[in-house]
Write a protein that binds this DNA or RNA. Structure first.
Lengths: 209, 209
DNA sequence: ATAGGGTTGACCGATACGGTTAACGGAGGC
DNA sequence: GCCTCCGTTAACCGTATCGGTCAACCCTAT
């Protein structure tokens, strides 16, 4: 990959990244043409090939960038350090929304890339990351104090269920095509409030009065 | 569409349907080649064109079939009639799982088709269905008795959250590529039990003792 | 004016596409 | 044995698209 890419004005860099995320998220690796990416980025195909030697290089660069900025944003938000589960989720949500605002198709791209089966790239993808999130989730789960939550609750199930609901909500937006991040934030916020009221012992007791 | 298609042995019919669902669910309409579908179905491209005049006809037939058998299966399961919310969800789940077993890519296809933007087919798709599920959900919601649930709960939020979690769980399986329906059933069942224990007043009171 | 680098339209060979056609092959009737 | 029918296919057609290249075009700074 040509280092001159980095000396491009940041808007143009973003435009190229977003174009790549978008096109590769809509189709298989093999069925995602470079010309379409170039068009979406507002540059010529030749210039795209000037910055990235070939399709594979662009794809792996996108994957790399996707992982990098996600972790960066998550770290920066402090989501990894928060003690309380719900403030942790709130920070994570903030980070995700900021990412979504800047790179609307990053989420969809990440999922597709993760499950991409084309032998030209699948090995590299699968190798580079792996059980990142799972490991984090397990650690987070261990730190929870059952006393904070309503009695008899299965904390692991609660965690999985909340994760799935977030993903389901996210997917609804992704599939719809238009990423209305503000509406999304509203939805997430309501979800979080709902869970707090449902799962936290203190809030539940107050609501029961 | 050639009526002789229906006199094919049912396994061959299913093979063609599944092949179509699979290929069209992985890529845009335009980037989904007929040859690939024929290969996946184990027949020649020429034969596929013998049963369906052209690509558009096959695609719309698949969409139609997808809607038809989903509604059929849902009705047959009695999901639309159940009074209690959770037994209703259980029936719906059973129906969905039966569908998934027979047509592993039906779910993914449905979502993609619903949001397909290609002008050659988008109009027909959007027109044929619409707010089907939403209307149903609203009706279901009105029938709920707040007394059955934990006090202070936002029933609409609860409903949305449960819907998203199911979708999120489903998507995790879809994206993973391999549809292990048994594992899925296990997960759904646990989700349901979790919700009953969390949201139902009676079960909650028992758990609190 | 000229040298240099960012940028592109035009091009290349290969292949993939939607759709057609002529022919194959086997089952049934005579 | 011969013919007919019909499900099925390999081979083909014209076109479009693909990944990738290249010579030439700006534009700016000397």
């Amino acid at each position: 990959m040509n280092p001159k890419f980095y000396s491009l004005p940041t808007e143009k860099q973003s435009a190229i990244l977003n174009a790549g995320f978008h096109v590769f998220s809509q189709n298989t690796y093999k069925k995602s043409p470079m010309s379409e990416i170039a068009d979406a980025a507002g540059i010529s195909k030749a210039l795209l090939f000037h910055y990235f030697r070939n399709k594979k290089e662009l794809y792996l660069f996108l994957w790399d960038t996707c992982c990098r900025i996600t972790v960066e944003e998550m770290t920066r938000s402090g989501a990894y350090e928060q003690r309380d589960l719900f403030t942790c989720m709130d920070s994570g949500m903030q980070a995700k929304l900021r990412l979504m605002r800047q790179y609307p198709d990053l989420g969809a791209f990440a999922v597709r890339a993760f499950y991409e089966k084309d032998p030209e790239v699948s090995a590299e993808i699968r190798e580079s990351m792996g059980q990142y999130l799972d490991a984090h989730a397990a650690k987070k789960l261990q730190k929870l104090d059952p006393e904070d939550f309503i009695p008899g609750i299965d904390l692991q199930m609660m965690y999985r269920e909340m994760y799935w609901a977030s993903e389901g909500c996210l997917w609804e937006y992704i599939q719809r095509g238009c990423m209305d991040v503000n509406a999304m934030e509203e939805d997430f916020r309501r979800l979080l409030a709902h869970w707090k009221k449902t799962y936290l012992r203190k809030e539940r007791e107050e609501a029961s009065l």
